[in-house]
Design a protein around this nucleic acid. Structure first.
Length: 482
RNA sequence: GUCCCCAUCGUCUAGUCUGGCCUAGGACGCCGGCCUUUCAAGCCGGCAACACGGGUUCAAAUCCCGUUGGGGACGCCA
């Protein structure tokens, strides 16, 4: 085809991500997409998005949107598509008929119920569940009853798949089913449409999940029967849950967009996923550029990997720490709005959200956590943690807080440099250790027992809100609510 | 049951192809310490693995065979 580059002496790389739109994009799908994308970018190739919606009952437009949203969020851009197989019915039917005409396919009138019954029987007897080829030699030409079209799969010899990740895999053709390529309702099945599309779209490398390994020899036979060149294959290992069973909802979130909602940065998820099954020496953190530069199937693991949320969270914290204030502030906005923040309202930290970020990014593991810690600066009055108040806002500390507030009134400018000497003077006069004073002050100002440094908190709040909050704390000590 | 694949710390992995540099390295988590105005972060230290059994070899985590264990597939799903 047109993808042959004389200079390189090899075919230009063309890969595809081909999800079926029956649900959201899950982390396993994203990793498959990522490996495809990385391989394409690494080799200056083309990344194609194809929607495999040949199952008309289970495919939905909402799922397509969810998948596209997930890919966009993760930053995986595609060069072609999304193509939809449902736009290509005629093509698949035409190819199926060609196979029929050439004797490579035959009509099968076994009903789904009969097939199911025979499978059950075989299972009970402990036999292979393979189709018994009952209709193979019937020579049905134009069945009047409902019939499916089956591919006449070669039954002699072996098919060897040279997998880029797993090495060579050998199958006896005798174990291969005569698979259905056209349903009795006239619509093609996955195994037919995938082969036709991969061939016609010039796919050079089929990079997909491990669960397709057993389909591969059947598809290779189909490529050959259709007289198409056979692409190279790379089957990426599965992602398992903690109990080593296939990753599913009961292991926690599997939807890519759920990670967005939980406050993960796309780069962190992508970095986690690329390291799950692939490695480059001891390196853990990769920029997108480094991934593209270093990715190769040579170092993709051939065994399944367990999804580890703790490590993902660690990476997320790393990316948050490295994040630029302005960028993080932007990402934080939707989370803050959930906490009741009004970007145009009067209740603002001094210097804006961007000013809070540097004090929180060192310690936050997710944007959700970061948003929660921002609450004291964006909501008035302060939401008081009763347990903290009970423990720290005591009559004993009231005089010191009062004294501090009195002196703070005159401090100008209101900053760490000017506040620090005042606090130290009070500690000395009142014979207090820093912890004994800072902790009650922290609770008064933030309503919580943990926060950034106390001077930073006061800077962010500004003089007015600092004084108001100390005043409110003193009132509360004087006249405790019942 | 049949077929396919896989097997290094709890987890992700380096090392395996090209046997010796491996008294098996890194990372997450966990434990302890330091720092400290809180919570984190940071820094330092610790625990922790070549599934088992046979070969081959002067030498095996690395090569071969078997066993066990795990995963996947066996749909008119993809």
């Amino acid at each position: 085809m047109a993808h042959f580059d004389m200079k390189k002496g090899m075919t230009d790389v063309r890969v595809r991500f081909a999800p079926s739109p029956t649900g959201y994009l899950h982390v396993g799908g994203l990793r498959t997409a990522l490996f495809n994308w990385l391989f394409a970018r690494r080799h200056g190739g083309t990344f194609i998005l194809r929607i495999e919606d040949t199952d008309r009952d289970r495919s939905t437009d909402a799922a397509i949107e969810a998948i596209l949203d997930g890919l966009r969020w993760a930053g995986l851009d595609w060069d072609e598509g999304p193509h939809r197989q449902s736009d290509r019915w005629d093509l698949y039917r035409q190819k199926a008929m060609e196979l029929l005409d050439r004797g490579r396919a035959y009509w099968c009138v076994c009903t789904p119920e009969e097939l199911e019954a025979r499978r059950k029987e075989a299972q009970a007897k402990g036999e292979s569940l393979k189709y018994d080829c009952r209709c193979r030699e019937r020579g049905l030409t134009a069945p009047t009853q409902s019939a499916a079209l089956r591919f006449r799969s070669p039954q002699e010899g072996q098919t060897v798949v040279e997998d880029l990740i797993k090495g060579s895999i050998t199958f006896d053709n005798a174990v291969l089913d005569d698979l259905i390529i056209l349903r009795s309702n006239g619509y093609p099945t996955y195994n037919l449409s995938v082969v036709i599309d991969d061939a016609l779209m010039g796919i050079t490398h089929v990079i997909r999940g491990d669960d397709h390994v057993n389909n591969t020899p059947r598809q290779v036979s189909l490529f050959e029967a259709l007289e198409y060149p056979v692409p190279k294959f790379a089957h990426v290992p599965m992602i398992l849950g903690e109990d080593k069973s296939r990753l599913s909802k009961r292991h926690g979130a599997t939807s890519v967009l759920a990670y967005e909602e939980m406050g993960y940065l796309p780069q962190a998820l992508v970095n986690y996923l690329v390291r799950l099954g692939w490695s480059h020496g001891n390196q853990e953190i990769f920029s997108i550029g480094e991934m593209i530069e270093k990715f190769s199937f040579d170092h993709v693991q051939s065994s399944a990997a367990v999804f580890n949320p703790e490590k993902l969270q660690w990476l997320n914290a790393e990316y948050i720490k490295q994040g630029e204030s302005r960028h993080l502030a932007e990402l934080l906005l939707p989370f803050l709005e959930k906490q009741g923040y009004d970007p145009n309202g009067v209740v603002q930290p001094r210097g804006g959200i961007e000013a809070v970020v540097p004090h929180l990014r060192e310690r936050a593991k997710t944007l959700v956590e970061m948003a929660d810690w921002t609450v004291p600066y964006i909501v008035d009055p302060v939401a008081m943690d009763e347990a903290a108040a009970g423990k720290f806002l005591t009559p004993a500390i009231a005089p010191s807080l009062h004294k501090f507030a009195e002196r703070a009134k005159t401090i100008e400018p209101f900053s760490k440099e000017t506040l620090e000497p005042v606090v130290h003077a009070i500690l000395e006069e009142e014979q207090l250790k820093m912890g004994k004073f800072a902790q009650p002050l922290r609770v008064a100002l933030t309503g919580r027992t943990f926060s950034p440094g106390i001077y930073e908190v006061m800077e962010l709040l500004g003089k007015d809100r600092t004084l108001i909050r100390i005043g409110q704390a003193l009132n509360r000590i004087k006249e405790p609510l019942i």
